[in-house]
Computed example of a mutant assay.
Amino acid sequence: MSISVGIDKIGFYTPGLYLDMAELATARGEDPNKYLIGIGQSQQAVIPPTQDVVTMAANAASQILTPEVKDDVAMVLFGTESGIDNSKATAVYLAHLLDLSSHTRAVELKQACYGATAGLQLAADYVRVHPAAKVLVIGADIARYGLRTAGEVTQGGGAVAMLVAANPQILALEPVSSYHTADVMDFWRPVYRTEALVDGKYSTNVYLDFFKTVWTDYQQQTQRTIADFDAFAFHLPFTKMGRKGLRQILPEAAADQQATLKAAFEASQEDNRHVGNLYTGSLYLSFLSLLRHGQLTAGNRIGFFSYGSGAEGEFFSGLLQPDFRQGFDDAALTQLLAQRQRVSVAEYEAIYRRQLSNDGRDVRLAVGDDDAPYYLAGRQNQQRQYRHR
């Protein structure tokens, strides 16, 4: 008899600063509606120097890991394209910060925004073979395109942490998925750059083409149609992107179901709209937003579209479980977002320029304004100095 495997718990962290997108539009000489409606973003997370992908992942994971759960974690799979070392995995730093067992396998995964989905699927396969084990899957990134660039409006950052287990509280993954890979230069970041290179319009077209491809293949494999779905969660580098994806398949649904799917999408984009681009974590923040704001019930089938530029796409599905609301702390997440402080455009630009340099020199960061449990204190002897309160 096959066991049910999927997402048991989910946590999210983003730093306590944000930029108002209408203010950014005004500062850049643009109509605010170009950002608020045309892109679909209201706020953007601002990442201070004291936070990187390791600390954000630790802050997200600490929300879902009790001492008892830690004992069962057999593996950490860390999806990111904002790695801090070309050799040592972010997962190793994270496992140490979280005080996980030295018998834990820890690996970093990279394929643009797709990395966390690769981690989720590998974790599920592992748990199906080792049902007593749990796997911690991370999607954490800092989206950087540069000040006054075309991609500036789609920056942001944060981390999503998921615990994959047998008999999960939140979502049971279904076994069939469809994936597609092609060598595409829509977005990339060479090792000598700190900001990404992107062909925005081309990347959007590739995203939409990949979605159609994997959706069609999934239907052929499963004989399911859009009528079998109650909601879809999309990778959302900006919320308008997922809206375009949904519009491609809405004509396949009856009128009443179209209304249901549209409402579910609005719920799924709510938190992303106020955080911005998380790269690997964007799909899973969208899923968490759907859980928090959507009208869902146990047994609902949710479709997921994951996309990573370069390019990799995957469509998969899962069934919502009866106790799904017990798998995340809704009140804490609401408080996290509500208590952030708004920064001016000038303050945002100054913070952007203060990111840890790539020259290897010793740095001591001003940590007094960062009240997160895990933070970056600086660099000494070319080693990042992580701290825990």
Score class of each variant (00 low, 15 high):
A227F: 10
D230A: 14
L171E: 05
G200Y: 15
A231Y: 06
A182P: 00
Y218M: 00
E195N: 10
D186M: 05
L208W: 01
P190A: 15
Y202A: 08
D199A: 14
L173D: 06
V206T: 13
Q221N: 04
T225D: 02
T149K: 01
P175R: 05
A166E: 11
Q169V: 14
M162T: 03
T222H: 02
A182E: 14
T222D: 02
Y202Q: 07
D217C: 05
V153H: 13
H180V: 02
S178G: 09
D209L: 06
E195W: 03
L171S: 06
L163N: 02
G151Y: 12
H180I: 01
Q155I: 02
F187M: 14
P190F: 12
F238R: 02
Q220M: 01
F210G: 09
P190N: 13
L208A: 03
E174A: 11
V198W: 14
Y207H: 04
S177E: 11
Q219E: 08
P237I: 04
T149R: 09
A231K: 04
S177K: 10
E174S: 09
T149Y: 10
Q221P: 00
R224P: 00
H180N: 11
N167I: 01
N205R: 12
W215Q: 07
P237Y: 10
A165G: 03
Q169A: 15
D228N: 11
Q220V: 12
S178L: 01
V191A: 15
S177A: 12
V198E: 15
A172V: 13
A150F: 04
N205S: 15
W188G: 08
G200F: 07
F238L: 03
W188T: 15
P237C: 13
Y218I: 01
G151F: 13
S178N: 00
